[in-house]
């Protein structure tokens, strides 16, 4: 008799709880995003930054051969490494593979990692991070108190070979880069194993492709390789841009890649490095 009493009391309590919880849930209609992707926890890394003395340069794609001014700025001496990116996701769970919002990636973000906070087996912690979207790269840059380089800044640094700041007119310049681009699985090698350029910057070409802040400013279509115009139907004033340096195959490859990218794309040999204004 006593046990029957306990059982019915239990049922009564569970009934009350279920009704209670039901009432509680009803008023909530729309749930607003809680943890914001822009709330970034800072991290500390010790990547050397180099000063790039600004100047005017002729962009690879230009409307009227007018020079573009690049201000003096700082750039990381090498692309962001696996090890440093791991620090970032450890400090910022919202940027872990399992937590990242789908709108910021294409389904393959850090797909090569073992799990949320473990680098791929046999990977070199000093190799460049890849399979990260533009959004993720932006967030990382924010975490280290930096930003992504602009396309002009990146290309400005990329004009250098080992001994001059602008080697574009040398025949060897483009050939050497194309040869580097053709090497397979180069993205798995650690940073800083090859020679630095004129500025002291490593690995502009030999390891990974790199995101730039305004990669989406390249409006030429893939068919405009011979200095012809882009699809005027698709873009407003597309005819304003055409290549200035048609023998620079390496640059065509880079710009071709940039036009094909979307900000949520993750690619297994696309990484990034950070930059900073000089007055910081």
């Amino acid at each position: 008799m006593k046990s029957n009493y306990i059982v019915s009391l239990g049922i009564l309590v569970s009934l009350m709880i279920s009704v209670g919880s039901c009432n509680k849930q009803e008023p909530t209609l729309l749930v607003t995003p809680k943890s914001s992707h822009t709330d970034i926890t800072p991290i500390k890394t010790d990547v050397k930054m180099l000063t790039i003395t600004g100047g005017k340069y002729l962009p690879f794609y230009s409307s009227d051969d007018s020079l573009v001014k690049v201000e003096t700025f700082l750039i990381d001496e090498h692309p962001v490494t696996n090890q440093d990116y791991l620090l970032f996701v450890k400090a910022n769970p919202q940027w872990r593979r399992s937590q990242i919002k789908k709108i910021f990636e294409d389904g393959n973000y850090l797909k090569h990692w073992v799990n949320d906070t473990t680098l791929p087996v046999n990977s070199n912690p000093q190799a460049a991070i890849c399979n990260v979207s533009w959004y993720a790269a932006k967030a990382y840059a924010k975490a280290v108190g930096k930003r992504l380089p602009t396309l002009d800044e990146w290309e400005f640094v990329a004009m250098a070979d080992t001994d001059t700041s602008n080697a574009r007119s040398k025949k060897s310049y483009s050939d050497n880069i194309v040869n580097l681009y053709l090497e397979k699985n180069r993205q798995l090698n650690p940073v800083k194993q090859s020679a630095a350029n004129y500025w002291g910057v490593y690995n502009m070409f030999d390891l990974v492709w790199e995101w730039t802040d305004d990669f989406n400013s390249v409006l030429v279509s893939g068919e405009s390789r011979a200095g012809e115009y882009g699809d005027k139907n698709l873009v407003c004033a597309a005819g304003a841009t055409s290549a200035t340096d048609v023998l620079n195959y390496a640059a065509f490859m880079r710009f071709g890649l940039r036009t094909s990218l979307k900000a949520n794309y993750t690619v297994n040999n696309l990484g990034f490095r950070c930059a900073k204004d000089i007055n910081h």
Binding site: I103, Y135, D214, L219, V235, C236, A237, K262, A263, N264
Partner: peptide, 22 residues
Amino acid sequence: QEFANVLSMKYKKISPVDFSHS
């Protein structure tokens, strides 16, 4: 810029007053 990227929209300032854009 972030919003443009969400729309996969390309744009570039080509003069003090004009942009080219998709």
